[in-house]
């Protein structure tokens, strides 16, 4: 089963690279949705020796929230803001993918430095999760469009979730689901903010918020 887990992690990293390299917002949202479902499955795979109702609950909630609710909220934001379907990068797509590979390298190195004891067959989990965190941060920084920044936040949360799943032995359901709901609220709030940015300025280019005088 170790190799199934490994393949899952490789798919996670590949979806990160796809997010960095793709230019269409809707495609990126679809990839993020796939990543969310992947994490739901991963939750079950990581705890397959001790499948408790608790694990099932966490897996199901994250599968549904990350795989369907968040993408749906984002799609609604696109529709309401009638945003254009481009990511508006500061850093070009090819360059982003190369940066992504560099982040993966850094994550591998960082993963070795962390004093975590993981079960066998899980050595790729921490690097993959760290890559996802870094990808999320990168998307927030390197894209102008407010929606892609929101997307970056979701990806960032995905990475943190993956680390949490393997590193904390006994996570309280309450804490885990609380975090997920926090993320959900954040996405809703961002959706509202995006709507207002769009109404005020007729676009979602956060760069132009600089022109506001405080």
């Amino acid at each position: 089963m170790g190799s199934v887990l490994e393949t899952t992690m490789m798919l996670l990293i590949l979806s990160d690279m796809a997010l960095l390299g793709l230019s269409r917002l809707r495609t990126c949202i679809a990839v993020a949705s796939f990543q969310g479902m992947l994490l739901g499955v991963f939750t079950l795979l990581a705890h397959e020796q001790a499948l408790t109702p608790r694990i099932f609950l966490i897996a199901a909630v994250s599968f549904i929230l990350k795989g369907f609710v968040f993408p749906q909220l984002l799609r609604r934001s696109i529709r309401e803001a009638s945003a254009q379907n481009e990511m508006d990068p500061y850093v070009g797509y090819s360059m982003s993918v190369m940066a992504g590979m560099a982040m993966f390298g850094a994550a591998l190195w960082l993963g070795e430095q962390l004093p975590l004891t993981l079960a066998a067959g899980m050595h790729l989990v921490i690097p993959a999760a760290l890559t996802t965190v870094l990808t999320g941060l990168f998307l927030i920084i390197a894209r102008k469009n407010a929606l892609s920044q929101c997307l970056g936040f979701i990806i960032l949360e995905n990475g943190i979730y993956a680390i949490g799943i393997v590193s904390v032995v006994e996570i309280s359901v309450l804490v885990e689901i609380g975090i997920l709901l926090d993320a959900a609220v954040a996405v809703v709030v961002m959706g509202v903010a995006i709507f207002h940015i769009n109404r005020q300025f007729d676009h979602l280019d956060t760069d132009q918020l600089d022109s506001l005088k405080g």
Binding site: M10, M17, G21, Y93, V97, M98, F104, G105, L108, L124
Partner: peptide, 21 residues
Amino acid sequence: VPQLLVAAGALSLFAFILSMR
């Protein structure tokens, strides 16, 4: 075209890093 080729390069690099472990 360059984007697709860079993606191919990234796939190769990714596989290479994985095989380095």
